[in-house]
Amino acid sequence: MEYAINLAILFLIYAILGLSLNLVVGYTGLLSTAHAAFYGIGAYAAAILVTSHNVNFFMALLAGVLASALAALLIGVVLSRFAGDYYALVSLGFNVIAYSVLLNWQGLTRGPLGIPGISRPYLLGLAFSSNGPFLVLALIFLAMAYIISRFIAGSSFGRVLKAIREDEGAIQVFGYDTVRYKLAVFVISAAMAAAAGALFASYITFIDPSSFTVMESVFILAIIILGGLSNLKGSVLGAAIMVLLPEALRFAGFPASMAAELRQAVYGLSLILLMLFRPQGILGEYRL
């Protein structure tokens, strides 16, 4: 049971990450490979505030969201000028920089040692220290992320995003400042990823930079491409499959020491197969 709850919580965290990345990649058509950076900023901000400043988890989460949104604003000012392949490449670069900051700013992040002893959340006498209540908390966060994403997708703002995806030049002719729209959706997406990061930090109770590499960004990308771009249910479905698939392999008899590499091989291979045979994913409404 404990094992199933653990997987369910990881699934919920990745579903939030998938939903938020889908806003940028699926709805706006910008291939961002920097999502793990914002996930990491949220996780680190929350972890540092909870451990060394004894801040309540929910306040720390909010601070993480703000920090990540601010970082996304600064990065987005540069990034939003690009489109297509160059967007993918420059965002990859930002993830590399974010990772090296987490690794090298040792005074703040303790570098490769990571931050241990992050406490579980509590609110108004309600403690989420065991995994059951934490699952409920994560579920509430996923529901919030889903509602926010659905609202954005259905709003006039969301329609402009889709128009940018289909033909950025044409929508500019109608007087829309596309750079501003791209920036806005990027910041919203980063803020949501940061909330997932704070949840992750307090769930695992230990974080180090290795959870926030470019490869993690590729993993989140694989989730939404598998589930289907520009479809919110697809992101949730993709997260479920991508979290459960490596576990299935473990039961098939592969040794646990190779778990991380095996997971990488699986999602790398699934990206190749998807591009070859079904680039729109399972439920996708848009293909790259």
Binding site: L31, A222, I225, Y267, G268, L271, I272, L276, L288
Partner: peptide
């Protein structure tokens, strides 16, 4: 070219 880029990312990873 984005599809090919994503496929190459898959090859790199796997």
């Amino acid at each position: 070219s984005m599809v090919q880029l994503v496929a190459s990312l898959g090859l790199l990873t796997s």
